[in-house]
Write a protein that binds this DNA or RNA. Sequence first.
DNA 1: ATGCTTCCCTAACAAGTGTTTGGTAGGTTA
DNA 2: TAACCTACCAAACACTTGTTAGGGAAGCAT
Lengths: 232, 232
Amino acid sequence: MPTNKPKAANQPTAENGPTAGKKRTAAKNQTATKKPQVTASPERRRELLAAAAEVFAAQGYNATTVRKIADAAGMLAGSLYYHFDSKESMLDEILSDFLTELWEGYDTVLAAGLGPRETIEALVTESFREIDRHRAAVAIYQKESRTLAPQPRFHYLSDSQQKFEKAWLGTLERGVAAKVFRADLDVRLTYRFVRDTVWVAASWYRPGGQHSPEEIARQYLSMVLDGIALRT
Amino acid sequence: MPTNKPKAANQPTAENGPTAGKKRTAAKNQTATKKPQVTASPERRRELLAAAAEVFAAQGYNATTVRKIADAAGMLAGSLYYHFDSKESMLDEILSDFLTELWEGYDTVLAAGLGPRETIEALVTESFREIDRHRAAVAIYQKESRTLAPQPRFHYLSDSQQKFEKAWLGTLERGVAAKVFRADLDVRLTYRFVRDTVWVAASWYRPGGQHSPEEIARQYLSMVLDGIALRT
DNA sequence: ATGCTTCCCTAACAAGTGTTTGGTAGGTTA
DNA sequence: TAACCTACCAAACACTTGTTAGGGAAGCAT
């Protein structure tokens, strides 16, 4: 499954033509297990991934060279390949680790059988907690997910987005039906607004700031649920 | 779009000179008019910039090669340099053009002497109109502004952000003082939420969709001002 | 015809890209 | 002691990147 990578840089340029490849891959491909190092300590691995995530989040994935990552980790570029088999697989691991943890939290909330309003409140709070814990990963997800999702390797991003939409949209609709939320608002539009605002917070949130995730969630929910206008 | 065929080439570069030194002409200073082509028709220039903006928005600035831009424009990479003197200057022109137009609209609104709530409404509506007209530029701005702003060349991005914050925050505070907005919400947090949600819309908005900019603004304002919860 | 201008192409260059190969210091085990 | 494994470095390789020279076809003015 993770074996053959299209070597050079992708590209949908219709015809790769006869002039394309220069016989680069020197018939090395036979032993299936391409995994380079499984023996490595998982701790060092996580350290390196954390370093990489910071750089990815700060500079963007494409603008980040493996040499910058290695620099941040205090080693040389080539040495990274003892731990990971490509730059892309680092990104992959960062994102899938994050999403796995995220959905653990979400699924717990969704299985709790709360009412619509309480579900929204719990989801938002949980989201800000995830931002607190995976700031870098969330920022990367925000910036790159749209470009990555079409790639087969990152198909789980699309899956996640669909699950995401289903959970939020479903809750909103349930709330409208239960006369907990207003019926005159476009549910899909509302969903987009809510979703975006929550996650964009990763771009300005700094852990250890003056607002805890719970406080931010409280303020945000107050705004979205009750509005900022003063009732008269 | 006529796909360019001339992708053969790729010659073996006679000697990969170990004489690496040879610093390229940095020429970073833009002290005076160093424009390479002023003679070019401004119309073609805008066409090319529009094409570039689309690719930048879709793939990200760093992930976009000048060859992709040229492809989208139906020409070859080198030909772009007849119109622009660098890839960066294309980005520069796209962003500064957008911001110039944006502030024309904003300044008009701010000078109208409206009340706090009406000012917010007008700003939001104006923002969605700008998204409608400069979707690509807004998307680029969203993705890259944080990385670009520190660079001297893009210092106007920081300026704009400060003006932006001043206008929005000022209006919100004015509204709180006038008892038009709630006093128990953190104004700075509210500002961030509102700002982000408005602009992130550029990532999903498609002109010609089922919602006009004005309709989106209306829905959004309804949510932020009055909340989505049903009043009982 | 000539020259000039506009706009693009061909072909290259040098620096930078992700990745591979071979080596090796230091620890652990036999 | 030797063999072995882990985690890294040094140096390259194959390709892509932004950018530049030189040239040439088409149009216009002289």
